[in-house]
Amino acid sequence: MKLIYRLYLGGYAVYSIARDLTKRSIKTPAGCDVWSPSTVRSILTNEKIKAMRFSRNAIRWIS
């Protein structure tokens, strides 16, 4: 999940993130081999994921 946020903050669009994750052979949360932009978008917009704090140049994970 950290990779998804890093790519997003690095300027990648959700379809580019999905393509990159698929190329890296990273399985989706459901265990599928192919990522879709909607899966990436749902992770980025999931309100239950509150462990991210964005700063200007860094990502800091908090508990």
Score class of each variant (00 low, 15 high):
54 F>I: 01
34 V>L: 10
6 R>T: 10
7 L>Q: 14
26 I>L: 07
12 Y>T: 04
23 K>E: 11
50 K>G: 09
60 R>H: 13
24 R>Q: 14
4 I>T: 03
32 C>W: 05
17 I>K: 05
32 C>Q: 12
13 A>F: 05
29 P>E: 08
31 G>F: 12
21 L>N: 07
26 I>E: 14
41 R>E: 08
22 T>E: 12
6 R>M: 10
26 I>M: 12
52 M>C: 04
55 S>V: 10
60 R>F: 13
42 S>W: 02
18 A>W: 02
62 I>H: 13
42 S>Y: 03
55 S>T: 13
14 V>I: 06
11 G>W: 08
59 I>H: 03
51 A>T: 13
24 R>F: 05
52 M>E: 11
15 Y>P: 01
28 T>R: 03
5 Y>M: 06
27 K>T: 09
33 D>S: 09
50 K>Q: 13
47 E>H: 00
1 M>R: 09
18 A>H: 07
24 R>W: 10
32 C>E: 15
21 L>K: 08
27 K>S: 06
38 S>A: 03
8 Y>D: 05
38 S>Y: 01
52 M>N: 04
40 V>T: 02
41 R>Y: 09
4 I>M: 08
7 L>G: 06
4 I>N: 03
16 S>T: 08
62 I>R: 12
54 F>E: 04
14 V>C: 08
57 N>V: 10
38 S>C: 01
9 L>M: 07
12 Y>I: 00
56 R>D: 15
51 A>L: 14
13 A>H: 05
53 R>L: 07
9 L>K: 09
18 A>P: 08
23 K>V: 01
30 A>L: 11
42 S>A: 10
7 L>D: 10
15 Y>R: 03
63 S>P: 11
18 A>C: 05
54 F>W: 04
16 S>W: 02
12 Y>Q: 10
50 K>L: 12
